[in-house]
Design a protein around this nucleic acid. Structure first.
Length: 349
DNA sequence: GCGGTTCAGCGAGCCACACATTGAA
DNA sequence: AATTCAATGTGTGGCTCGCTGAACC
């Protein structure tokens, strides 16, 4: 994974850090035109105020060789333009994956790198499991006002699809300036314009645009871009109306990371528009995507205690089951005896 | 069309034990 | 009220096995 010289594109090995030449790079610094590992990034960009302003972007999770330009929410992965194009041109379903531009990491924060956007999608920073469950339940319940037994399944499918597809169903055309800006930033091939346009992925530039416009665009798309304190911009999906009781509970912890108030107001004041008619193909694609997502959701697992995970991973097993350490010791002792007798060595304990 | 066989995929259950939680002293 | 201690409950990952549905004869 690491046996690769910098700049060598002949292999699929991950690019190694330009500085330490040992660890796999995790970010790309445009100002330095350098790929850096987490440690070197923190060290270099904490050196002085000028360096701390360098904009960095994460490295593509697929090829691990180029700066990530887009975040695919369906795959929960940060991808460079090449991998994004490759992966999302594979089939119609993949083509419909929603992707959002990745905003650069600000230089103001140091220490451990903030979690990757993809990780944030899975378990957004600062959110508890209860928050996620609430979001999920809310996203389902709010969009399934009528749940009778006869149409429940269809309603669930439709509602879930509609919520997620709402963005992509809209005819969104971002301006050439917007597109060119993003393209210039991430070297997006011209061919991708149509692709991203069809996917309704609107590059959002916080630097050049007012917050109000961004919010408007985000609402139109149903995407709320979260510019948290760590500077990562990532979309927060499926955040609907939060019950006030719960909102008050979570607002203190969440308020620093997302402008949830705006979302609540927008959604509560503006009824969500649902697509009225779906063509056969469209619906089939939606159902496929629904199943795909549901499958993914089923396998999603949140680790509550990392320490227990670490223990479980190091714990001895017999046929997959956790084994008593005494058993393992006994096995070790037995094997040792066998080996010892084989080589004529008598163990002394 | 029906019944039997084979195969693949999926999910529940199992295991030990560190750690969290709870209740009593 | 605060602290300590013991008892109980929980969560963790890899493997196996049984169930189910599809495919085939």
């Amino acid at each position: 994974m690491l046996n690769e010289k910098n700049g060598d594109t002949s292999t699929n090995w991950a690019r190694i850090c330009d500085t330490c030449q040992s660890a796999a790079c995790t970010v790309y610094c445009r100002a330095d035109t350098a790929y850096l590992c987490t440690g070197c990034d923190a060290r270099i960009h904490a050196a002085n105020p000028v360096a701390s302003r360098h904009e960095r972007v994460r490295v593509c999770e697929a090829c691990e060789r180029a700066p990530a330009a887009f975040l695919c929410k369906a795959d929960a992965a940060s991808l460079c333009t090449t991998c994004d194009a490759d992966i999302h041109s594979a089939n119609q379903l993949a083509r419909r994956h929603q992707r959002v531009p990745i905003l650069p990491i600000p230089g103001s924060l140091f220490g451990p790198l903030a979690p990757s956007p993809s990780a944030l999608i899975m378990t957004p920073t600062g959110e508890t499991d209860a928050d996620e469950e609430m979001e999920e339940a809310t996203s389902w319940l709010l969009l399934n006002p009528v749940k009778n037994s006869e149409n429940q399944v269809n309603n669930e499918v439709d509602a879930y699809l509609d919520l997620n597809e709402y963005n992509s169903c809209q005819e969104i055309h971002f301006t050439d300036d917007q597109y060119n800006n993003q393209k210039q930033r991430y070297n997006v091939p011209d061919d991708d314009k149509k692709m991203y346009g069809s996917d309704s992925v609107v590059p959002v530039q916080y630097g050049s645009k007012g917050k109000e416009e961004v919010d408007l665009n985000s609402f139109q798309l149903g995407i709320e871009f979260d510019i948290s304190n760590d500077g990562y911009g990532y979309p927060v999906m499926d955040i609907g109306v939060v019950p006030e009781s719960r909102l008050s509970e979570v607002s203190s912890s969440v308020s620093q990371q997302r402008p949830s108030k705006d979302t609540v107001d927008l959604f509560s004041n503006s009824p969500i528009q649902m697509p009225t008619q779906l063509s056969g193909m469209d619906r089939e694609a939606r159902v496929l995507r629904y199943r795909e997502k549901k499958k993914m959701r089923k396998f999603e697992k949140t680790i509550r205690y990392a320490s227990r995970k670490a223990y479980a991973e190091t714990r001895p097993r017999i046929k997959g089951r956790f084994a008593k350490r005494t058993d393992i010791d006994q096995m070790f002792y037995t094997s040792l005896i066998v080996d010892s007798t084989r080589y004529g060595i008598v163990p002394s304990f």
